[in-house]
Write a protein that binds this DNA or RNA. Structure first.
Length: 952
DNA sequence: TTGCTATAGGTTCCTTTGGCTCCA
DNA sequence: CTGGAGCCTTTGGAACCTATAGCA
């Protein structure tokens, strides 16, 4: 706002626009102030409408700034002032922060309907993170942010009071809240844009810079004055972000020309888009390392940004911060010397090995005071705060642990200093001391970053480096490289086309460059290759590329489509406005869609081809970078390098073929292309892949047999070691040809030396044979007298040794049908027989059970009331005397059924006959059972009769 | 202080086709 | 006598990874 007058004085048009914008801002600020002071905070879906008509202009502003970190987040804000007499300016601003794939946000500022000219500006800054994990704290932050994210929030005004003279009131301001077309009941209601957001960047821009949008083939150099102007007018200064939402923060940044790096970067993207440049918001994703230990040292500046509730703080999280927090408890708790606090922050790694916190604190504890010009400066300040005494300091042995202690001490000391400041700062009673401690800590770190940003990319503060480039813009310059080029534009640091500097700057600040993602059109694209010159260092730290590509695939499409909406087609300058209107349906919902729908169809093909070409060109560029990476300077980098290799780092099963060309040297060792590295295998191994060695080829490499086999030979008393010095002959792929196994002739299956066929794959089957994978099928082949070979399909490591696994047989193809048919019959017969046996067994058991029951009943009736003086004799007599009833019982019931069901069961038939003609029970020992609990021994006869004897 | 190399130690992966007894 | 089933007992070398010392 301070530059508003300046801009007004520069041009009539822009000045008028600026004035109108400022009037609108002030009007809305007053309204927001009233709402805030009355305590009636507007809730979601707030709708406010005022009509404002000025003398000469009616400016339509639609601003939609979204910051959502949840899936449901989709918001749209719109402020419109319409019907200008002399100008029609449409500004579209779209600043999105989406932390999930589904996030959809849209912002738009529109000023429309000018008489003499129609300019459509769109600003669209997106920050979307594909990560689906959100820290609990982050979610809470976002939740709070959503709650107070109404642009009319009172705290906006509290935090940043501006002069709002009643004379500056605008009358007839129309503010509408349009429900997003795609919004559903589950989505967040729309919100109004704040008054601050109506401050158009374009209205601040000098006229001569506005003309840059008319340049047909923009180049990087042409952007210099624009970036310089932006750098001069917008400064990085980390404000108390925790106290306000992103929307308010961005509005404030727009108004005060100060903000966090991501805010400034987002505004720069918005500016580029407003000027009809094709621009993207680029961010280094703050990701957790694949290896948990590596998380110990996390860039403090990134953490600070995240915790402080920065615009994209949540969106760049790929791993749940809650998980991080679970790893290390909060330092606010009893043990302050943990790796991370409750915000998931970790200390930066710093070499030095000082285990005493005092030294660390005195060296690195810093405080900052603001100079008169508003810029932050930093000072080293002795720390008198509490010391960090790690619980497990005695047990820590590693250097890294000591370093960590030191770093943590720094963090704690810094916290303490901030606490003192906070007591002073929070005198207004807004924040309690306890609640403000973490926030203040991050504020401090942010200030460090802020200070560093004025000095360039990298700033060292003691051993802790801050100021890493995290956010910047990419502008597509169609005047570069004949075909156009994405140009790195860091408006915060006033650096244009400095993509080579990013990696070094990030490395200097110990920021990992694992993922650099460009955001646009609700999508994202991985452009790490553009900024990473040492891919071999990055690649091992990235997730599986296949997974990552699949995750990004839909986002890439969105990004591509989104960029199409803001593309500048210089070939048709006269149609700029109409083309740019194509973005409006995307921005403004269904109504605009209907209005411009026809134009979309007409222009989409032209646009689509252009975008496709641009995307393919960029893909080619990134791919080219992947293939032209500079040679690493250390040898170990070649060990797993995707492009280059050193011969000394090859394994014994690898060889260089062809051995050249030599691409360079590293420590005197020639560097070869990785494509020259060939994997060698034995003849048997190649056979598994259906390949065999050509007849004239000799082993390209010969290895001695492993000592394991030598030992085995020695153990077998085979001492002819000279003769037994067997070797492993290795062959390369270029020595191979397709496997030519002998063909099956006369129904005979060709077998190997073990009389089998190794079926590693279908390629290993001799021609004319087929693999039948059925259990017991060999029985059928044998019965049919068909030649077959067991099919060995692999090995199973069992009992300390490899055991071959067989599955089915290999037979000649002509016997396949016969075998299958016979197999079906055999299986049917086998099933029937199995069923018959099962039934017979069941009947036998039933017979045995019933016989036992009947016998028991007879015994009970026989001995009831009689003397038990001669039990053995009685039993014998009983057996004889009860024979008839038992027999009659069997004749009447079970035996009849049994005979009918199983006439061939000669065993039971014999038993029955024996009973009928005077069977004498025989109690075999093998049929006895003993109940140890009751000391009762049960003796059984083959006929089913049993007696129980209590043993004394 | 940083980066590189060599090395040690631990971990992971790959290797790979018995022989005996019992019982039907 | 034969053939099938079950049991025994649990490798070791190479590659790979990580930490560390030493050096420039």
């Amino acid at each position: 706002m301070r530059n508003r007058d300046k801009s007004k004085s520069q041009t009539q048009s822009s000045g008028t626009l600026a004035r109108k914008s400022q009037e609108g801002v002030n009007k809305f600020l007053r309204r927001s102030s009233r709402l805030s002071s009355s305590g009636k905070k507007e809730q979601d879906g707030f709708f406010l409408e005022n009509d404002l008509k000025t003398n000469d202009q009616e400016v339509v502003h639609t601003m939609d700034v979204c910051n959502a970190s949840t899936v449901e987040g989709c918001h749209r804000d719109a402020i419109e002032n319409s019907q200008a007499k002399e100008q029609e300016v449409v500004h579209s601003m779209d600043v999105c922060n989406a932390s999930t794939v589904e996030d959809c946000h849209r912002d738009a500022i529109e000023n429309s309907q000018a008489k003499e000219q129609e300019v459509v500006h769109s600003m669209d800054a997106h920050n979307a993170s594909p990560g689906d994990d959100c820290h609990k704290d982050t979610l809470l932050d976002d939740s709070e942010e959503m709650n107070d994210s109404d642009w009319e929030d009172g705290p906006i005004l509290k935090s940043d009071p501006v002069d709002r003279s009643p004379n500056e009131r605008m009358k007839g301001l129309t503010i509408e809240f349009d429900e997003p077309s795609g919004s559903t009941g589950g989505r967040k209601p729309v919100r109004r844009a704040s008054a601050e957001d109506k401050a158009s960047l374009l209205s601040l821009l000098p006229t001569h810079l506005l003309k840059i949008s008319e340049v047909s083939n923009i180049t990087a150099n042409a952007l210099t004055p624009l970036v310089t102007w932006f750098h001069d007018n917008f400064h990085v200064r980390n404000l108390a972000r925790a106290e306000r939402s992103f929307r308010t923060a961005l509005a404030t940044a727009l108004e005060t020309h100060e903000g966090t790096p991501e805010e400034i970067a987002a505004l720069s993207v918005a500016l580029f888009r407003a000027l009809k440049f094709t621009a993207r918001f680029v961010s280094i994703l703050d990701v957790t390392s694949l290896k948990p230990k590596a998380d110990t040292y996390e860039p403090s500046n990134q953490v600070a940004e995240r915790v402080s509730g920065g615009i994209f703080s949540t969106s760049t999280l790929m791993v749940d911060n809650l998980k991080r927090a679970s790893i290390a408890p909060s330092p606010v708790q009893t043990s302050p010397c943990n790796e991370k606090d409750d915000h998931g922050i970790s200390s930066r790694k710093s070499k030095g090995g000082c285990s005493t916190s005092n030294v660390a604190q005195s060296r690195d504890s810093t405080s900052f005071k603001e100079s008169t010009d508003g810029k932050s400066t930093c000072q080293v300040q002795p720390d008198t705060s509490r010391q960090c005494v790690p619980k497990n300091s005695q047990g820590l042995k590693r250097k890294g642990d000591l370093e960590f202690e030191m770093q943590l001490a720094m963090a704690i000391s810094a916290t303490s200093v901030e606490t003192h400041e906070n007591i002073h700062d929070s005198s207004d009673g807004n924040n309690s001391l306890e609640a403000s401690i973490p926030m203040k800590r991050w504020k401090r770190i942010e200030r460090v970053e802020s200070a560093s940003c004025f000095q360039g990319f990298s700033t060292a503060l003691g051993s802790r480096k801050v100021g890493s480039p995290l956010f910047w813009a990419e502008v597509y310059c169609d005047g570069e490289n004949l075909t156009g080029k994405w140009v790195h534009v860091d408006a915060v640091n006033a650096i244009i086309d400095g993509e080579q500097k990013v990696e070094d700057a990030a490395a200097a600040c110990k920021t990992s460059l694992r993922y650099v993602v460009a955001f646009a059109g609700h999508g994202a694209k991985d452009v790490t290759r553009r900024y990473c010159m040492k891919w071999y260092k990055i690649a091992p730290k990235r997730v599986n590329s296949t997974w990552w590509d699949s995750v990004l695939a839909p986002l890439r499409q969105l990004e591509s489509g989104g960029m199409g909406g803001t593309i500048k087609v210089s070939e048709h300058p006269g149609e700029n406005s109409s083309l740019d209107r194509v973005i409006l349906p995307e921005k403004s919902g269904q109504e605009a869609s209907k209005e411009y729908g026809s134009k979309i169809e007409v222009e989409s093909s032209v646009k689509g081809s252009f975008v496709a070409t641009r995307n393919s060109l960029e893909d080619m560029e990134l791919e080219t970078r992947a293939l032209t990476e500079p040679l690493p300077t250390n040898q170990q980098a070649y060990k797993n390098h995707a492009l280059y290799a050193l011969e000394r780092w090859l394994t014994k099963y690898q060889i260089l073929h062809p051995k050249g060309p030599i691409l360079g040297f590293c420590s005197g060792h020639p560097v070869y292309p990785r494509s020259c590295v060939q994997t060698l295998k034995t003849r048997e191994r190649w056979l598994r892949e259906g390949l065999q060695i050509k007849g004239t080829e000799t082993p390209v490499k010969v290895l001695e047999q492993s000592t394991k086999l030598k030992k085995a030979r020695v153990s077998e008393d085979v001492y002819d070691e000279i003769d037994s010095k067997e070797t492993i002959e290795l062959y390369g792929k270029w020595q191979l040809e397709p496997l030519l196994l002998p063909r099956a002739v006369n129904g005979i299956v060709p077998k190997n030396e073990r009389g089998q066929v190794d079926v590693w794959s279908e390629k290993c089957l001799p021609p004319g044979t087929v693999h039948i994978r059925l259990p017991r099928v060999f029985v059928v082949a044998k019965r049919l007298e068909i030649d077959y070979a067991p099919a060995m399909v692999g090995f199973e490591f069992r009992n300390g040794r490899a055991v071959p696994v067989y599955d089915g047989i290999v037979v000649c193809t002509e016997f396949k049908d016969a075998i299958l048919e016979a197999y079906a019959e055999e299986e049917e017969r086998r099933a029937a027989e199995e069923k018959k046996q099962t039934e017979a067994q069941a009947i036998s058991r039933w017979y045995q059970l019933l016989s036992s029951v009947i016998t028991r009943q007879k015994l009970n009736s026989y001995y009831r009331g009689s003397s038990s003086s001669q039990p053995s004799r009685n039993i014998q007599d009983k057996n004889i005397e009860t024979k008839t009833p038992v027999q009659s019982s069997k004749d009447n019931k079970q035996p009849t059924a049994h005979r009918k069901a199983n006439n061939q069961d000669t065993t039971h038939t014999t038993s029955l006959v024996a009973l009928e003609v005077g069977h004498e029970h025989v109690f075999l020992t093998k049929n006895e059972s003993f109940d140890a609990e009751n000391s009762i021994r049960t003796k059984r006869c083959e006929c089913g009769f049993s007696i129980q004897v209590e043993e004394l």
